[in-house]
Amino acid sequence: MVSQLKVGEKGKIVDISHVGHLVQRRLLDLGFTEGTEVCVKCVMPFGGPIMIESCGQCIGIRRKEADRIEVERL
């Protein structure tokens, strides 16, 4: 899961099909899909959102969505 990565760690997305329908579409729009390499940039306190980066593109998503993105640690 993305949320298990620590700040600065990299991973490769394996599966995003468990993410909510709307969020999944938005992730695709932004180029985050199976096979994309991501890096966790920062984690907001109190269960706040997570900032992840891929190819120089940063996005913020909620922790509970990040929990549903399966990654493989690199």
């Binding site: 909510g20 709307l22 969020v23 938005r26 992730l27 932004l30 959102p49 900032m51 120089g56 593109q57 940063c58 996005i59 913020g60 998503i61 909620r62 969505e65």
Partner: peptide, 9 residues
């Protein structure tokens, strides 16, 4: 609820 935000440089 949907929150995915692009963070521009």
């Amino acid at each position: 609820s949907l929150f995915v935000i692009e963070l521009p440089p």
